Simulated scan of single mutants.
Amino acid sequence: MKTSVFGAVHLGYLVIETQRFSDWARFGTDAIGMHRDDLGSGVMRFRLDDQECRFLLRRGPAEDVVATGWHIDDHASFEQIEARIRAHGVPVVRGSAEEAELRGVERLLRFPGPKGITQEIYTTPLKSAEPLLMVSSGWVTGDAGLGHVAITSTKPERLRGYFDTVFDARLTDFIDETISGVKLKVRFLRVNERHHSIAVAAVRGLPIDPVRTRVQHLNIQADSLDDLARSYQRVHELGFDMALSVGQHTNDKELSYYARTPSGFEWEVGWNPIVVDESTWEPATHQGISIWGHTPVGQTIIDKLDQFRLGARSLTRPEKTVPALSGAPGPGRRR
């Protein structure tokens, strides 16, 4: 019988490829309020806590998230995940000492992931002795991990199967939403006590993907409501685009806003989401993403037309999947 690694997996860091280093420096440090370390002309890191790296930015053309790093609690779970991937015939590459050092981790492995986002696992995050220098008072990480990543997909069942196969991800709930006449279904997956570490959104009835980037948004959790409000104000004052105003989600009850990053995907800053109680939780379907708020900011009809153009273009562009790791979820697990 397969031993579950659920609970031993935590979203640890993200790797972003960009040419817009000066914009990202202002966005991450001055607007969002993270600690920044400049490691040279082509490398920059952001910290949220005592771990050396939560976001690694490297110079390149993608303007997107290119890798997701998962902290695995112990060597036994790490080796079990590695064995699963190899057993399915999927290549696993050991990260070099230099790559591990840039990410501030030990024992680094990488393997292919959905939508071309490389998945990386590691066992030990390195701690920094340098004090945090940031305008925010703090961020919530710990056992719940960094936050979450949201992905749009034309093949949501394959993403659901992938994260079940690799990490024993559990379905937390669904949201049904209609935006500009387009019906969406969003699946929320958890790998620990955080309500979700992965969200997968799909257009119902149409195999289109209206988002240019591999991720639609990523999320980090503010330590206080005051931190949330002040970062929202800084994003406005510094001239960065706001995607959605402050609002509250229906499912995890998180209060949040969405800013647009220099690379084009969105960055959600949230506060006070519920924590899942594994002994009582049952998946449910919620109608609408928000109880209140989260209204589009400055969106024009041109922006909406551009989204539909991107969606139409995705019909001719096959979505990258990893079929060998995207099988059916385990017994009793809903899609």
Rank of each mutant, 00 (worst) to 15 (best):
Tyr122Gly: 00
Ser231Pro: 09
Met134Tyr: 04
Glu177Thr: 06
Pro131Glu: 09
Glu237Trp: 04
Asp241Tyr: 01
Pro112Asp: 07
Arg107Lys: 13
Phe111Thr: 05
His236Trp: 11
His217Ser: 09
Ser128Val: 05
Leu109Ile: 13
Leu159Phe: 06
Val135His: 11
Asp227Ile: 00
Val140Glu: 13
Ser224Trp: 05
Asp223Glu: 15
Arg187Ile: 14
Arg204Gln: 14
Arg214Ser: 14
Ala243Arg: 11
Val135Gly: 06
Ser180Leu: 13
Asp226Ala: 10
Lys155Tyr: 03
Pro112Thr: 01
Arg230Gln: 14
Pro210Cys: 07
Pro114Lys: 07
Leu218Ser: 10
Lys185Met: 12
Leu108His: 01
Lys127Glu: 06
Ala243Met: 06
Gly161Lys: 09
Phe174Gln: 11
Arg212Thr: 13
Ile198His: 15
Leu146Lys: 03
Gly147Met: 02
Ser245Ala: 13
Glu193Asp: 14
Arg194Pro: 02
Ala201Cys: 10
Tyr232Asp: 09
Gly247Tyr: 12
Asp227Val: 00
Gln119Tyr: 12
Thr165Glu: 13
Lys155Ala: 13
Val246Phe: 09
Ala222Val: 11
Ala129Trp: 00
Asp168Pro: 04
Ala229Gly: 13
Ala199Lys: 11
Leu218Val: 15
His236Leu: 06
Leu206Tyr: 05
Phe174Thr: 14
Phe111Ser: 02
Leu132Gly: 09
Asp164Leu: 00
Ala243Ile: 00
Lys127Cys: 01
Leu108Tyr: 00
Arg110Leu: 06
Thr152Tyr: 10
Ile151Asn: 04
Gln216Val: 10
Pro156Gly: 02
Leu126Thr: 03
Thr141Pro: 04
Arg170Lys: 15
Gln248Phe: 00
Glu130Cys: 01
Lys185Leu: 14
Thr213Arg: 13
Leu132Cys: 12
Arg190Thr: 03
Val149Tyr: 11
Val135Gln: 09
Leu171Met: 14
Leu218Glu: 07
Ala229Gln: 11
Val200Asp: 11
Ile151Gly: 07
Gly113Leu: 05
Asp209Pro: 10
Gly239Met: 15
Ser137Ala: 07
Ala199Glu: 15
Pro210Arg: 09
Pro156Arg: 03
Arg107Glu: 13
Asp176Leu: 10
Val191Asp: 08
Tyr122His: 11
Lys155Glu: 13
Pro156Tyr: 02
Asn219Gly: 12
Ser180Met: 10
Asp168Asn: 14
Gly116His: 07
Phe111Gly: 03
Ile179Trp: 11
Val215Leu: 08
Ser224Lys: 02
Tyr122Val: 01
Met134Asn: 06
Met134Phe: 06
Tyr122Lys: 02
Leu218Tyr: 08
Val211Arg: 01
Arg212Glu: 12
Asp164Ile: 04
Pro131Phe: 03
Thr154Cys: 10
Leu159Val: 05
Ile220Phe: 09
Val149Trp: 08
Thr165Gln: 14
Ser231Phe: 01
